[in-house]
Simulated scan of single mutants.
Amino acid sequence: MKKPLKEKQYTRSESDKQIEALKEQLSVFQNKLDEKERIINELMITDNLTKLYNREYLATVLEKEIARCQRYAHPLAVIMIDIDGLRNFNADHGTMAGDKMLSLTGNIIKENIRKFDRPFRYGGEEFVVVLPETDMTMAYIVAERIRKNFESVCKKEFAPGQNGSYTVSTGITSVFAYTTNTIEIEELIDQADNALARAKRKGGNISSRFEYVFPLS
């Protein structure tokens, strides 16, 4: 008769080593899963062309920043940016060049804001920047820096077409803690959009600040 096989005996030290090895493998596996989840979440809130945040993520950010503005009594600013004459640019240079300009705009915006400011592609040729702890004066300085850099970079990157040079217009609004009780996300965006529309009416290539109109008592 064959002798029954004896189960391999492990010392306590060997068992501990195996358990630690398994824990390490599980930890590595979990880290990889976490990284993949982070990448997927990042892709869901990122515009593919410009690599800025997308419009869907804007409401989430503004909701948090307005709440923080109220909690800590800090100002909050929003800049809306529009490329002047992008359709004319596409007519002169083609849509592929237009995509390059949109991508370039995203880079220019990122290079001219702080790390904790949030840039978004709002749609088409429109962009939005959310600037925490920023009043109207500081937001205007940032908007002008973006506007001037855009014009300077485009002069180097693109030859002028039949429709002239290429610029951006910006609209700016800013709120303080005492005003955020009555300001909704949509209202804040509308204020920046109204300021942008005024810049466009004046011929473009300027930065325009939203003007509050307080009711008479």
Rank of each mutant, 00 (worst) to 15 (best):
Q9T: 07
I206R: 11
T95F: 12
S169Q: 02
I185E: 14
C154A: 12
P132G: 03
T50W: 05
T95C: 03
N31I: 04
E14C: 03
F116A: 04
V153G: 06
T182G: 09
E126P: 02
D82Q: 00
Y212R: 10
T137E: 14
L131D: 03
E151Y: 12
I206A: 01
P215M: 07
R68H: 11
G94S: 02
E187I: 06
L104T: 13
G204C: 07
N90A: 01
E186F: 09
R38F: 06
A143T: 00
S208C: 15
Y72I: 08
D193M: 09
S217W: 09
R121E: 01
P132V: 02
M80G: 01
D34N: 14
K115Q: 08
Q191P: 05
P4D: 07
N88F: 13
M96H: 12
L5W: 06
I108Y: 02
T137Q: 14
E42P: 01
R198I: 14
K32N: 12
T180Y: 02
L196K: 04
Y166I: 12
L58K: 04
R209L: 15
K200M: 00
L196V: 07
A139Q: 08
I108K: 06
I183Q: 02
G161D: 02
P215R: 08
D117I: 09
F214T: 11
M136N: 08
L43T: 07
Q70G: 13
N31W: 00
I45L: 07
T182I: 08
R147G: 02
E56R: 14
A177Y: 09
E125F: 00
L188N: 05
K2H: 13
Y57E: 03
G123H: 03
